[in-house]
């Protein structure tokens, strides 16, 4: 069993709001420097920078969970994570089919860049990624679970794009594995106030960083796992088999 300091909600420069410095190679390099063992690159409705991150991470020994921040029809954000890039690619095809035909305006919303593992420019994503898919929250969670993934309601404590805010409460049978809280210093407070509305879901904290400084300063979650897989994370969230999860961790304060 090993303790993994994890940040499972990060944006690369493929997200319209992601800074140019958020290249896959730069993110995994800084993760190693910060002592973060496991990350997920979760761009809005997109995943083209995940494979480059996995490739770049080999050099640094960082585990990159293939992931995405999905915007469902109800305009709530859901973090989905998989074990293998193949599963994420299968999911991406469903996302592509459910995307509205809107073009991104790089000047107003920010440009969306795809790069390779060495930070070389590959392409600019021209579709508007920060937009709701024609898929309900139920459809997103059900499909990702069926593909072998795990689903986490993102930043439920925020005013915008929170599934909890959009839906008022999280239905117990939705199939979510956890809820994410993103702000600093409010963990216990939020947990107590929000837990009845989340149907008692366990919670994690992530940085939701769009720039390196936010990645450095933002909250992480420590997982005690035998290996960094979806199945192990599920065990940890349920507190089973000696696995455990500890939200509210920060760089330099690893315990």
């Amino acid at each position: 069993m090993k303790e993994w300091l994890a940040d499972l909600h990060l944006h690369s420069l493929l997200s319209p709001c992601g800074e140019i410095e958020m290249t896959p190679h730069h993110i995994v390099m800084r993760a190693a420097e910060f002592g973060v063992d496991m990350i997920a690159l979760t761009d809005h409705n997109a995943s083209a920078n995940v494979a480059p991150a996995i490739e770049a991470a080999q050099e640094f020994g960082i585990r990159v969970m293939p992931g995405m921040e999905v915007q469902c029809r109800e305009e709530g954000h859901i973090i989905v994570l998989f074990d293998e890039i193949k599963q994420l690619e299968d999911w991406q095809r469903q996302v592509d089919a459910a995307m509205q035909p809107l073009a991104n305006d790089p000047v107003r919303f920010g440009a969306q860049f795809i790069v390779d593992a060495d930070d070389n420019f590959v392409a600019e994503e021209e579709r508007m990624l920060l937009a709701p898919l024609a898929l309900s929250a139920e459809a997103v969670v059900e499909t990702c679970n069926r593909l072998g993934g795990i689903c986490i309601a993102a930043h439920i404590d925020r005013a915008s794009y929170s599934l909890l805010g959009q839906l008022g409460f999280l239905p117990r049978d939705l199939g979510l594995a956890a809820a994410e809280i993103s702000q600093r210093g409010i963990e216990e407070l939020q947990r107590k106030a929000l837990q009845p509305l989340t149907g008692g879901l366990p919670y994690i904290t992530s940085s939701d960083a769009h720039r390196i400084e936010d990645f450095r300063q933002g909250p992480k979650t420590s997982f005690c796992l035998a290996e960094p897989t979806v199945a192990e994370i599920r065990l940890a969230l349920r507190g089973e088999g000696g696995r455990c999860v500890k939200p509210g961790c920060y760089i330099g304060k690893k315990t």
Binding site: R73, A137, Q166, L167, G168, P171
Partner: peptide
Amino acid sequence: MQGHQNIAAV
């Protein structure tokens, strides 16, 4: 504009 099942619950 929401059509999720929670509109019925609310």
